[in-house]
Design a protein around this nucleic acid. Structure first.
Lengths: 345, 345
DNA sequence: AAATTCTTTGCAATCGATTGCAAAACAAAT
DNA sequence: ATTTGTTTTGCAATCGATTGCAAAGAATTT
């Protein structure tokens, strides 16, 4: 039955029970040296008096915040929401809370967010890089103070920072091989900024699959843009003008694949009959378009869990900063109508 | 050039400049009483020594955290990501940071999250309620301590808590009127838990539109479920068995509308020819399905901004807790193919 | 009964920024 | 030179939890 009047502190509890604040503090923390009955009394009194723990005082004294920062490009996908959920699960169990922020795909924002996290003294930070992040010097302030930084999904090669991602090269390779199996031999790839691992690796996987099957790669077949809706439509127009006409399009994101596909459908082409399509990420949308989109699925929740575990590990055993350096998660090819040339007429 | 060795405090800066910590503190905060040159020197030295503000000490002393808590059902929609962006914009400008968490549509989670926010001493809290939240006593701890609580979108009627939302009644009414104009007169409505304002109000709007047009409402026409994919498909099956067959379906979410529509398409019916469709929220998906979905659009970013401003107002002028009690934002009917019976054959 | 061990508890300093009040420094006016 | 007024700065207490160390108390052994 607390009232707004005054915050109750451990001193108030101590006074009421004729104990010292030290004992109350330990009692609340379930310290082994405190008598069971005393603990019980402390807990009961704290509850009755409406005590609430003051993390500021605690953090000040202990010099850590029990907060993990998370910077992501955007929160608006199922994938990201799953990642966050996975992180939350692990992190909460370890007694930490999250401080989430969006970079909106801009390095400027990312830098600002990193600064804010730094000033808020997060104990560790999880990052999926923005679309246009070219260097990562804004994370040096963390490593300099031994605050662990872990990248996930949109990662960057750097010996200092562990990274969690899927094998984008292999996934793309598998996907493109599937398209080739379906009889496609002139496959366009639409990708994003090649400085981002996820896009560069997918491009490599695509090219390797062509090579493995003795298909020629031509520069014209690779379209690099920002994967936005506008870009997808523009790409579609470009594709429609290509001669000979490509017989498949593999876009590095479902969103882009879908928008491109719709534009091409609008031009009267049959999918997958004339052109097969495939995307990446298994977005909810992929099941909603017609035809349903072949794509690569990987589990955001799992990725979040692993990333969080890695951070927590670093915090628990501060010594072994590089025990597990990087981690590659499983991904899976999901075949749907948009690429099934064989099956459909 | 800070190194990991030691945290620099205002005392260190004070010592180096032969000043008192008080002056340094004021200098860093741009206090009017401090000489301009002194300020400049303080700032420069702080920068050079690698000082970082210790918010724990500050919070402890000032008894506020400058943190605003946000609890939302899920982060996985464009809508929510926009809301968060709007909130962030306003809140950051006012010197606050965000503490975001997801309830995953569960009241249990919501309660836990509220507790965590409370213990982390947020200065205010913004909430969009979970699907199954029946009572809101878990927010009383905040009001009891004069911590402002503002609801948005999924709100609840309560004189203590201001709320920001659109006029769901009017929006649904407009939408259903549009369907009727298109010649529909047997309109099914699929909605969510009627204890949630957004769903109850949309249902009322739907029913009123029928009444306004002298159309009979039958219980059979209202399907209440959890709006999930499975529920949408089940609803579709139910609709297909109705005699006479309905000529329109209005679902309280785009996701549900789309899944239901796809199932009905699969059964061979023409949309909108046989059955017209409409959803709610203008999700990205709505433009991706075929036919594109008629829906109601409202601006998440704006809603976030307003909600944040309301909280910040309460924090700045703690007196007038109920100056603006609630706020209704604009929404707009977006007409697309799925409801255009007139236009399409 | 004395000595030893194990349990419990308390003392007091510490973390770093803030702020009311007072004092010092300086400039301007008499 | 003295008084008055204006800028600048400093003193010192405060916020509340933590923890190394020591001491008191209880239980056990000789």
């Amino acid at each position: 039955m607390a009232d707004a009047g005054k915050e109750i502190t451990i001193y108030d509890i101590a006074q009421k029970l004729n104990l010292s604040a030290a004992t109350v503090s330990r009692g609340l923390k379930d310290h082994p040296g405190i008598n069971k009955n005393t603990k019980k009394k402390i807990l009961a009194t704290a509850e009755k008096m409406g005590y609430r723990f003051n993390s500021f005082a605690s953090n000040l004294r202990k010099k850590n915040s029990n907060i993990i920062g998370v910077i992501v490009p955007r929160l608006n996908s199922n994938f990201m929401s799953d990642v966050i959920a996975g992180i939350e699960k692990v992190v909460n169990k370890a007694g930490y809370t999250l401080f989430i922020s969006q970079s909106f795909e801009s390095m400027q924002h990312e830098i600002t967010n990193a600064k804010a996290m730094f000033n808020n003294r997060v104990d560790g930070i999880l990052v999926s890089l923005a679309y246009d992040t070219t260097n990562i010097s804004h994370f040096e302030q963390f490593t300099r103070r031994n605050i662990p930084v872990v990248f996930f999904d949109r990662v960057i090669e750097h010996e200092k920072y562990p990274a969690i991602c899927i094998d984008n090269y292999k996934a793309a390779n598998t996907l493109v091989s599937h398209l080739i199996e379906q009889g496609c031999n002139r496959i366009v790839h639409i990708s994003g900024d090649q400085r981002r691992n996820v896009y560069a690796d997918r491009t490599r996987g695509y090219q390797q699959a062509l090579k493995d099957n003795q298909l020629p790669f031509e520069d014209e077949l690779l379209i690099v843009n920002d994967l936005s809706q506008a870009a997808a439509i523009q790409a579609a127009k470009k594709i429609l003008k290509m001669r000979p006409l490509p017989d498949a399009v593999f876009a590095a994101s479902d969103f882009c694949a879908i928008n491109c596909m719709l534009e091409i459908k609008k031009a009267g082409l049959k999918i997958p009959g004339d052109i097969a399509f495939a995307g990446f990420n298994n977005d909810q949308m992929a099941c909603v378009v017609e035809p349903q989109l072949t794509t690569i699925d990987y589990k955001g929740f799992e990725m979040g869990e692993f990333a969080a575990r890695m951070i927590i590990n670093h915090l628990v055993n501060p010594g072994e900063l590089q025990n597990t350096h990087s981690l590659v998660l499983r991904s899976e090819l999901i075949i749907r109508e948009s690429s099934l040339k064989a099956g459909v007429k």
